[in-house]
Amino acid sequence: MINSDIKNLLNSSNGKKIATRAAYGSALAELGEVNEDIVVLDCDLSKSTKTSLFAEKFPERFFNFGVAESNMMSAAAGFATMGKIPFVSTFSVFASKRACDQVSISVAYPGLNVKICATHSGITVGEDGATHQAIEDVAIMRSIPGIKVFSPADATETKKVIEKIIDLKGPCYVRLCRGSVPVIFNDDYEFEIGKGIKIMEGDSATIVAAGFTTHIAIEAAKKLEDEGIEVDLINMASIKPIDENIVVESAKKTGLVVTVEDHNVIGGLGSAVCELLCAKNPARVIRLGVQDKFGTSGDPSVLVSAYGFDSDSIASAVKENLRYK
């Protein structure tokens, strides 16, 4: 299920790296063949969100709304009432903030079958800077009743998520990224809504990651392993509903949880983990990610270090907190 070479994957230069937005575009283009109800909506960003791959094959089922995200989002709701399966794409900042009320009232309140697949999430957008770096999208979407939130870690998982949500009746938000990431999962991996998956196992600590940060967390877990510290590494693509069981069981075993997200630590994956552990199994949780400040322009890897969720920061966070166990 998991690439057997996972531990070497990250430094091998010949390892394939694919952006999850690219995997999304290809998946849509494939699914468009078998499901004629799929329509795709975009706001003048189809070359970046990769919905252009669908648009080229099915121009009659592709609708470009220009730079008008709120109009697009409510139009998607309308499409859904006509029995279509609308996939709505733009950058995550615009899907979550520009069209927030439309997501809430047009889509979520009536529970319509709209798939919001937004790209360029997190500060790893890089050079475009704060205005284009979604650090609140998970918090916003997670807090809207009825919206499921998925954050796939690689190309394989993205494809599986997209295939899965076709059969899901109701709204969901899929968080995709700009930058390329190694392929972590093999084709036989099955994504399940509400389930996380353990990528590595150990007793010292639990690391929970999702999306762009999963491969960084693998790198960190490897560094720790080299120092004799073995951790549970949980990939949590299903942020809502979250896999309570896998987190609780691991936290019971290790007594220390570190969450890693390319998102504000308020309201995202870290918060979701805290919420469930508070109720089920209180444990020390260290939330790595954007510490409640705006992003900034810069090379993505420079930003990941500067904002403190590169592999060294993750490894240090684990080591520094072992003594509290």
Binding site: D128, T296, S297, G298, L303, A306
Partner: peptide, 13 residues
Amino acid sequence: LRKYGSILQGHPD
């Protein structure tokens, strides 16, 4: 321009 720490962000600040 657009580099980490610059006064010249990718969009005006």
